[in-house]
Design a protein around this nucleic acid. Structure first.
Length: 260
DNA sequence: ATTGTGGCCTGCCCGC
DNA sequence: TGCGGGCAGGCCACAA
């Protein structure tokens, strides 16, 4: 599903529409329009505008106009960004690679005939005008050691839940977090505040390594743990049967042998 | 304030 | 072969 690595690919794709005037706004699905705005509001906000910058915070893609509003795009679990018929990613875990026109939930057409659209089978994504960026923590790819220490300190919530709390650190979803904690040999259910200094350093090291490595491989579903994230799956490191449980409200796979 | 839970969306897979 | 139940997870509202 689109976690920060996929949305980063979408951002690079969206870069292609910078500098082009919007000649049409297609918003056929009011459900996908969030933040108290309507499809008509989207037309008013972006028709005739030109995007001048592409940004990403966690799983939120932001396209800024020069003096007007900012477009915010969220992709939920099955959202794909398509520019001129090209998808931002090759394959979406848990998503369909089919292209049903009904799944086109939002689109912009630009001068010169170019087009950008949000395709989302399950309608878990969203489009917003001027999303509140303050509700997001620092992006996981730029998280400093000091920021990590502060966001974990004193917390009783499970480590995994805290890492997936987008207001604490933005960008980590279920697959990346399971992979990260498996690599860092940390139990997802540990209270976030219980990590020792060495454990926290280990977490941060693996965070950056995991993001770089999985980005190179092609996405959040390319982790070493991924193929074993099934009932009865075994730890690729030591062969122990993985534990399957709910942590932080999400299905969680972890190794009872080496994640402590 | 912090943490936990349930519901929403709907395509797809599995078992009968 | 068709059908239905369960499952996937990001996000939000709401409860404790």
């Amino acid at each position: 599903m689109p976690e920060m690595l996929e949305v980063e690919a979408y951002r690079r794709l969206a870069h292609n529409v910078l500098g082009l005037a919007v000649v049409a706004v297609d918003a056929p699905d009011a459900w996908i329009v969030k933040g108290g705005t309507t499809p008509d509001d989207l037309v008013d906000a972006f028709l005739g505008q030109t995007f001048v910058a592409d940004r990403r915070i966690g799983k939120l893609l932001l396209l800024d106009t020069a003096t007007g509003p900012t477009l915010g795009l969220r992709f939920g679990m099955t959202g794909v960004l398509d520019v001129d018929g090209v998808d931002g990613i090759d394959r979406l875990e848990y998503g369909s690679s089919r292209r049903n026109p009904v799944w086109d939930r939002f689109g912009l057409r630009f001068e010169g005939g170019r087009a950008m659209r949000l395709r989302d089978a399950r309608r878990l994504g969203g489009v917003e005008v001027d999303p509140d960026e303050r509700r997001l923590g620092p992006d996981a790819s730029t998280l400093t050691a000091a920021q990590l220490r502060i966001l974990l300190a004193e917390r009783k919530a499970p480590l995994k839940a805290r890492l997936m709390d987008q207001s604490a650190v933005a960008g980590l979803g279920n697959l990346l977090t399971d992979e990260l904690l498996w690599r860092a040999s940390l139990d997802p259910a540990r209270p976030a505040g219980s990590l020792s200094d060495p454990e926290r350093r280990r977490l941060r090291t693996h965070l950056h390594q995991t993001l770089v490595e999985l980005a190179e491989r092609g996405g959040s579903h390319t982790g070493d743990l991924q193929d074993s994230r099934v009932r009865g799956g075994r730890c690729p490191r030591d062969g122990a049967e993985l534990q399957r449980r709910t942590v932080g409200g999400r299905t969680t796979y972890s190794c009872p042998e080496h994640q402590r």
